[in-house]
Design a protein around this nucleic acid. Sequence first.
DNA 1: CGGATTAGTGTTATGTTATAACATATTTTC
DNA 2: GAAAATATGTTATAACATAACACTAATCCG
Lengths: 147, 147
Amino acid sequence: MAALMKAEILCRMAGKKLTNIRRRVLEAVWDSHAPIGAYDILAKLNDGGGRTAPIMVYRALEFLMDNGLVHRIASLNAFVGCAHPGDDHAAGFLICRECGSTAEMDSETLNEALDTAVAARGFVVDSQVVELRGLCPHCNEGHTHAR
Amino acid sequence: MAALMKAEILCRMAGKKLTNIRRRVLEAVWDSHAPIGAYDILAKLNDGGGRTAPIMVYRALEFLMDNGLVHRIASLNAFVGCAHPGDDHAAGFLICRECGSTAEMDSETLNEALDTAVAARGFVVDSQVVELRGLCPHCNEGHTHAR
DNA sequence: CGGATTAGTGTTATGTTATAACATATTTTC
DNA sequence: GAAAATATGTTATAACATAACACTAATCCG
């Protein structure tokens, strides 16, 4: 799997260890087509008789997030693989309410607009949560919903 | 309290009932200078011997959110009073990591940018979570942090 | 009016998400 | 190879949220 390979390389370059459990959690995240919850990851790991504890999953997720390999979707209490690992980027997400698919949006336009809106108020941003829920192009076929 | 008065009026106009528990939850939300968690609201209600149950608070919060009186901050699992009740608006939030104060950002610029970034991908947005964490102007005095 | 319907509240129990505290094992550093 | 740092394993519990069902109050409409 390409994402796994890339993760291996990035960790090696950064002097970080992509240990077994971390790799297995990352695999579980990528195996899911949609954002996946920590306890669903846990279930995958323990499928077939493992005895991994919740905190082990959370610790792995923390590592993966710190190293830009996974993002947390706060509005879903769930996690997705990062589409652009390596870049240190502020991302936004487009979450389809029908199919659950989640696209990472790394838009200049978006971040410039955020900066502008925010700078006007003298606020200094450290981190952002931008999660837009709606219909992806595929699920929107034949519909006529507007915002 | 002004927010309470406004809520009364808006509910009356909409034919909705701002019952006792709903009003008390709304009060608790406004009494807090920062976003407040459901169980902290609960504690306030029960301070002095009440026996309100968690679900009663969640039910009240659901009503208040449905009627545009309260917003949920997903990244904090907490709730804030809506700064512009009555408008049906898509808001964003600026959350100070030092003092916890939270400003509601109802920016045209922001929403236009979101629309632009999103329309380019053929995505149709229903609802949004925009929560920016950082330093408010007051807490930023004397600092030189950048994004 | 007064019965039927709807909306709201109260109560108990449980589900879901996340972390604390501490012991053990492994790796790195010097 | 001892000390320090990093990672894992184990048990328990904290924090956030909802299900299910009984009961009460408000409203609708003959």
